[in-house]
Computed example of a mutant assay.
Amino acid sequence: MQATRAITIDAPVEDLWPWVVQLGQGRGGFYSYDWLENLVGAGIHNAS
């Protein structure tokens, strides 16, 4: 099974880009569950 999900964001690129580039390991995280990120070995830790 394969699924692709998408959303439409009604905003100009210059407003969205700063949010996109801070995603990922060593940055702002993946906006997911810590247990899920660590299950795949991402090593993400939140502030608490």
Score class of each variant (00 low, 15 high):
residue 5 R to M: 11
residue 34 D to Q: 12
residue 6 A to C: 09
residue 20 V to N: 01
residue 7 I to L: 11
residue 20 V to R: 04
residue 34 D to H: 08
residue 42 A to K: 13
residue 46 N to K: 11
residue 9 I to P: 00
residue 6 A to F: 12
residue 15 D to Y: 10
residue 41 G to R: 01
residue 18 P to F: 02
residue 16 L to Q: 02
residue 43 G to D: 08
residue 36 L to Q: 09
residue 31 Y to G: 06
residue 5 R to Q: 11
residue 39 L to F: 14
residue 26 G to M: 00
residue 1 M to L: 14
residue 10 D to L: 03
residue 13 V to G: 01
residue 38 N to L: 08
residue 21 V to W: 02
residue 10 D to P: 02
residue 30 F to P: 00
residue 38 N to F: 13
residue 43 G to P: 03
residue 25 Q to S: 14
residue 3 A to R: 05
residue 2 Q to G: 13
residue 28 G to K: 10
residue 28 G to F: 10
residue 43 G to E: 04
residue 21 V to A: 03
residue 32 S to A: 07
residue 26 G to C: 01
residue 38 N to A: 04
residue 44 I to V: 15
residue 37 E to R: 07
residue 18 P to C: 04
residue 7 I to C: 06
residue 36 L to H: 08
residue 13 V to M: 01
residue 34 D to K: 09
residue 16 L to M: 12
residue 6 A to N: 10
residue 27 R to L: 05
residue 27 R to D: 04
residue 47 A to T: 13
residue 36 L to M: 12
residue 6 A to Y: 09
residue 28 G to E: 13
residue 19 W to F: 08
residue 48 S to D: 09
residue 41 G to Y: 02
residue 20 V to H: 03
residue 15 D to V: 15
residue 42 A to R: 12
residue 5 R to I: 11
residue 27 R to P: 00
residue 44 I to D: 00
residue 41 G to Q: 00
residue 3 A to S: 10
residue 12 P to N: 09
residue 46 N to P: 09
residue 21 V to R: 05
residue 3 A to Y: 06
residue 10 D to H: 08
residue 29 G to F: 01
residue 39 L to H: 11
residue 31 Y to W: 09
residue 19 W to T: 07
residue 29 G to N: 03
residue 3 A to P: 03
residue 33 Y to F: 15
residue 42 A to E: 08
residue 37 E to I: 05
residue 38 N to T: 05
residue 40 V to S: 07
residue 42 A to N: 07
residue 9 I to M: 04
residue 24 G to F: 00
residue 4 T to M: 08
residue 6 A to P: 03
residue 16 L to K: 02
residue 22 Q to N: 06
residue 31 Y to R: 06
residue 43 G to V: 03
residue 3 A to L: 14
residue 31 Y to V: 08
residue 25 Q to M: 03
residue 2 Q to Y: 15
residue 28 G to T: 05
residue 33 Y to S: 05
residue 30 F to Q: 02
residue 8 T to I: 11
residue 16 L to Y: 02
residue 23 L to H: 02
residue 24 G to Q: 01
residue 40 V to F: 14
residue 20 V to F: 08
residue 4 T to F: 13
residue 8 T to P: 04
residue 40 V to Q: 14
residue 19 W to C: 05
residue 9 I to G: 00
residue 37 E to S: 08
residue 33 Y to H: 12
residue 11 A to H: 07
residue 4 T to W: 13
residue 2 Q to P: 10
residue 8 T to K: 13
residue 44 I to C: 02
residue 39 L to Q: 10
residue 3 A to H: 06
residue 23 L to K: 02
